[in-house]
């Protein structure tokens, strides 16, 4: 069977990541344990209270599981976005520009951490344990996860592309990225309206967590349409920001 260039790139990145099987298995299993340990906090909180901000333990479990799967998929296949500042700073993009494939794609597949597959496994376990998905929900799950992963990846590309304009921006990008992950893991109901507005706009945590959960549980077409629009908007933004930065890089304008 002939594979396309994209599939070849992704496959070789996965092979490189799993070159040491022991390290790969340990990374993945420890991440799964890590996520499950972290989730115990919610068991404790919901032990004495059936609802928090209108959310139940099961719904929170679905939120956490879905975010973990979306994050695991994007990081496991395209985890190289964290290396954008490194490529900019150390001139690694020069080499990529000479190659026939899209430099963005080459950057994205340059890192595929094994631990991400631990996120996927623990995420699926939590989604299953939440027991909230009907057959229709399970059928919608791959699409919804993909859309959440697209928003996640696009926002990550935007955050890490700051390096084209700002020197030493690694920490700032990491914090923005961590903030995106953090806010997406808490029930929407605990946030006041002003924060929710931010989570649906500048920091799209709503589209990596709450909205996909609403689509899966309520089978709402409106929520699905909103998620689709968000995925389209954020991927266009990521593409535009990265290539605008790349043009700046090509012109020899350095950050700082």
């Amino acid at each position: 069977m002939k594979l396309g260039p994209l599939a070849h790139l992704m496959l070789s990145a996965q092979k490189a990541s799993a070159a040491s099987l022991g390290t790969w298995l340990m990374g993945a299993s420890m991440m799964a344990v890590n996520n499950l340990i972290f989730f115990t906090m919610w068991f404790v909180l919901f032990r004495s209270n059936s609802q928090l901000g209108g959310w139940t333990l099961e719904r929170t479990m679905l939120l956490f599981g879905l975010s973990a799967v979306a994050f695991g998929v994007l990081n496991g296949l395209f985890g190289g976005f964290v290396r954008i500042p490194e490529f900019v700073r150390e001139g690694g993009l020069n080499g990529l520009l000479l190659r026939p494939r899209s430099p963005l794609l080459l950057v994205l597949v340059s890192k595929t951490p094994a631990s991400s597959w631990g996120d996927v496994v623990s995420g699926i376990a939590l989604i299953y344990l939440s027991d909230l998905l009907s057959l229709q929900g399970w059928l919608l799950l791959p699409l919804v996860t993909l859309l959440a992963a697209v928003v996640f990846l696009s926002a990550s590309i935007v955050f890490f592309s700051i390096a084209f304009w700002l020197d030493n921006s690694d920490t700032l990008s990491f914090r923005l990225w961590e903030t995106l992950i953090t806010f997406g893991l808490y029930p929407e109901g605990i946030f006041p309206m002003s924060v929710r507005v931010c989570l649906y706009t500048f920091l799209p945590a709503a589209f990596t967590g709450f909205v996909p959960v609403n689509v899966l549980v309520e089978h709402s077409q409106t929520w699905l349409l909103l998620l689709l629009l968000a995925a389209a908007f954020w991927s266009a933004l990521a593409y535009s920001v990265f290539y605008r930065g790349l043009r700046r890089f090509v012109r020899g304008v350095t950050a700082g």
Binding site: M30, M31, I37, F38, T40
Partner: peptide, 13 residues
């Protein structure tokens, strides 16, 4: 790093 993640989450919990 994998050992650290578990150590860190044990610290948190």
């Amino acid at each position: 790093s994998p050992v650290y993640w578990v150590f860190q989450k044990c610290l948190f919990v």
